[in-house]
Design a protein around this nucleic acid. Structure first.
Lengths: 215, 215
DNA sequence: GATCGCGCTAAGCGCTCGCTCACCCATCCC
DNA sequence: GGGATGGGTGAGCGAGCGCTTAGCGCGATC
């Protein structure tokens, strides 16, 4: 059980960059509230209440409720992109890097489901210019995964008729984890990550014949 | 181009059972509005306006705004379940039935993205007892897919270490189509359905060596 | 030790929400 | 033709929304 724990478990880690302390507490409260009820069903009074402050305190640190969502979304997407970049640029074969990319990306979505839910599903609640900024980050996410798959195809290691379609499917699989994963469920983020990495290797035609995943 | 069109293309078909006519128009308007902006961001005035009626008209046919979502969600889940059941109980090998189940399920999510979005992503906006009813339908959806996979494993046609996990992944892949599919994008629902059926067969270890999907 | 500035609160503004109510007007039965 | 019925409207209620403003407490500064 001495696995990497940079992304799994506690979700507080990525928000260390947010200062001052009150602003971070408000952001964390907003993440929880948005994940539970959705952006539009969350009130500024609810966010401030969770952070132990009065409703007006929110507007000292953030101009609007939407700015909170924007900040959460940008930081979350940057973290997701960072996870994929690290895996994509590591040493190893395309299959090894794709497996590591998928398993770490899935671990992030499962372990930090609260954050991932907001990041992946509340995009439409942003205004046009904020959404455009986030969509640019999403295209970079897509490009990282596509890059690994293209390398595997070029080296003959993968057998993929439709690279862009398969890229979409791989990301789809990972992202949807944030929708269904249940912390109280029977699976740990690590187990889901390992299972999904195996399934993705099969999708690109690089799966081991059998027996890598247990259960 | 003489393909089955029962689920693709126009989305108006499944709502034929809703009467009277004004109630159906309101329901259709609600589906559009919920899909575009989400349940909580949609106002009853918006729904009534899209249906060409006054805000008060809504309450002649529906007790609350939530009842609209409940009706949409139940009808949608029943349709989804029906699609999967038809594929699961058709003749053919497990691989053929799984491919048909995935491709028709994906076609429904892509072609009827408006409806599918509401059905798959607005579940949390329902109250406790309505949500419980829908969750029971979801368990039946899961059971249909799991059933096909179990048959393929039993016959030795599939190689699946984790049946429940793979079932989850297959459904995940299909459902997420409703999140990203764009009607104006480069792919038709039929193309995505064929691609995803191929990918799923690879996931269960029953994929053809290569060359089934084009592009 | 008075002054200042910053983080925060109490109160509340203007607005829009889900929903209701009194009433209208075709259609239909007798 | 008179009255009942049922789908529809215009106006508006109470509540809760996002956000603002006036002022308070308190540590840092000189």
């Amino acid at each position: 059980m001495s696995m990497a724990e940079e992304t799994a478990g506690t979700e507080a880690s990525p928000w260390g960059e947010v200062t001052p302390d009150a602003a971070r507490r408000l952001l964390l409260a907003a993440v929880e509230a948005f994940a539970e009820r959705g952006y539009h069903a969350t009130t500024t009074r609810d966010i401030a209440g969770r952070a132990g402050m009065s409703p007006a305190a929110l507007y000292i640190h953030y101009k609007t409720k939407e700015e909170l969502l924007h900040r959460i979304s940008r930081i979350g997407h940057e973290k997701a992109l960072d996870i994929l970049r690290t895996a994509a640029r590591a040493e190893g074969s395309p299959a090894e890097r794709l497996a590591e990319a998928v398993s770490s990306f899935v671990r992030w979505h499962a372990g930090g489901r609260t954050t991932a839910r907001v990041v992946q599903y509340e995009l439409d609640s942003l205004g046009p210019e904020a959404r455009a900024e986030i969509l640019a980050l999403r295209r970079q996410v897509d490009a990282e995964v596509r890059g690994i798959i293209e390398e595997g195809v070029a080296s003959g290691e993968f057998d993929v008729p439709d690279v862009q379609g398969t890229t979409l499917a791989v990301l789809s699989l990972c992202i949807d984890v944030a929708r269904w994963f249940n912390v109280d469920g029977p699976r740990t983020p690590e187990e889901v990550g390992a299972l999904y990495a195996d399934l993705v290797l099969r999708m690109v035609g690089a799966g081991e014949p059998s027996g890598t995943a247990q259960r």
